[in-house]
Design a protein around this nucleic acid. Sequence first.
DNA 1: CTGAAAGCGCTTACAG
DNA 2: CTGAAAGCGCTTACAG
Lengths: 351, 351
Amino acid sequence: MSGPTLSDVAHAAGVSYATADRVVNKRGNVAQKSIDKVRDAVATLGYVRNVAAANLSRKQVYRLAFLIPTGSNAFFFRVREHIMQTARHLRVDSVTVDIVDLPAFSVDALHSCIGQLTSFDFDGVAIVGLENAKLEQPLADLQARGVEVVGLVSDLPNAFRSAYIGIDNKVAGRTAARMTGLGSGSGEIQTFVGSLDARDHAERLQGFREVIAADYPQMTVLDPVLTKDDPAVLRSAARRALQKEQTVSAFYNVGAGNVGLIDAIRETYVNRPFCVVHELVTHSRQALIDNHIDLVIDQRPDVEVNRAFALLRALIDERELPPMPDLMPTIYVRDNLPANTFKPAMETQTT
Amino acid sequence: MSGPTLSDVAHAAGVSYATADRVVNKRGNVAQKSIDKVRDAVATLGYVRNVAAANLSRKQVYRLAFLIPTGSNAFFFRVREHIMQTARHLRVDSVTVDIVDLPAFSVDALHSCIGQLTSFDFDGVAIVGLENAKLEQPLADLQARGVEVVGLVSDLPNAFRSAYIGIDNKVAGRTAARMTGLGSGSGEIQTFVGSLDARDHAERLQGFREVIAADYPQMTVLDPVLTKDDPAVLRSAARRALQKEQTVSAFYNVGAGNVGLIDAIRETYVNRPFCVVHELVTHSRQALIDNHIDLVIDQRPDVEVNRAFALLRALIDERELPPMPDLMPTIYVRDNLPANTFKPAMETQTT
DNA sequence: CTGAAAGCGCTTACAG
DNA sequence: CTGAAAGCGCTTACAG
């Protein structure tokens, strides 16, 4: 900084340091006259609060919580790893992190978990959310207590969080379709979804269909197999589809459970279809390397997690938010894979 | 933090605060006996220095410089914009930035510029470098004065910088080849390079050739047209290649000057070849949207610039470096384009 | 070689 | 409604 300090402001305004502080930090109990003088001084001097000094004085700590779906999903395993790694690095900046596991896709579980959060006085929470109106009340309560909340990967009701950090799933689906069109060109595309009730899956499929219909009319999108993200379901459905060799020229798995899909492909000795899946995890990574699939569309959970931390801290400090360009889905082929930083053994079996 | 402070350490070691400080910060003039006691106390208490408090006390400011090639290159225009934007945001954290423009690819210019840097006492510099031994001496001088230096986009002699922030260009070329193989499949690929003396161009071409040779034998990589990154050269060469409609099925421009390539494609009413270029700038972005090209391989200068700032600050603070996964080239199609944050009018005409 | 003390820019009781 | 003062965890002269 090395700009003007609050005592410069107090001086210029002809009031005490304490009074200048009261108006700058809106602590109240100040005469209008003093307020005006301080405001003027701030403006003419271009005073800007030194957040580091303030935090030192206040012994600020950042108590953060992340609410992450539990279970065997490899993607969220990755998310969790990134959170822990970042947390470790941010300990020296006085941030502490609790990761709260909760059942996937359960509005009730999320509802009660958010409700309990109020008793732990966190400063900020990042939530893998659901856009359900039932969550509005507990979120409002949380925010009323001054807790900053952001949606992560999957959004919360818009008015009840400060930001959403995640990709646009329709864009992800469109990207998958573009690559399928480029790579395959004609024939039928067998699609797989976990559930059409899951908004992200529905949006991806919609985006996918739009692009194929508009730009690749020589391709047909077959109705999706419903998989519940279960590898076993994917495996058998994929095997069936692989029998129809001549007509199915591409696979697109909108959801998780890729292990099953990959198994089916590995076990089948025919020309495999062009294959696009989501999320770079141990198995999809290996399948890319082994040439069992062609492309992975990834949402960069590392970037998302980093941003969640940065954003939460900025919100808690009430400082200007950093520039945050839209998060776009990333396309991986086997040539631009980042080094694998996780030990495969630690990752769970699904997806 | 809220961990032990240095006065806790001093207490435990039975020395004064000043002495504890001397050993922790290696200021010398301490009896070995005191050193040992303090070291012990640090270890048993798990003391970790509060960088924020230290910086406040010392009135630390970060004076940074970025050495960026000048000229009409749209990519470096983008780099410069990101630096300025980030700098604006980091002003409140006491970082000031000077951007030094210098002629592209000139070892001599870089040499003298680095030499002059010593007289400005910067705390850290990021340099779009060249791997030339002539630069070693001035870099060594700079580092001897305690200036932190990192290579950005293009590396410096390895032993004379603390880190390189940029992509692996061979990986970028391999990625381009993979996409060309997926999208085109057979026929001749006309390549274009600015200069084979430019290491990044040579590496990209090498990676490209490797993948085509290994995995797409039904395609042939034609020898590159040397363009000096000049749009006019690209334009006429591309027009010539477009005459050979039936044989050339793909274009790959390793370097800059894409405006010329895009113009040639726009002006030619034949089935255009499959088209891959590098770096997302105003023109390549628009060409993607207009379906004049198929893919852009980008190195995310925004991410690189952010990392340069973070790294330089961590180095200057002598604190633990943040986790830094490898930077991989990003693949853009027209569906996963980030919003354009620059006003096209500001961007120069080339590339 | 060692220590006491002022000061960095703020916040927070506490006394008027 | 206003101000003087201690303290956050460090660094930096300064005196011994």
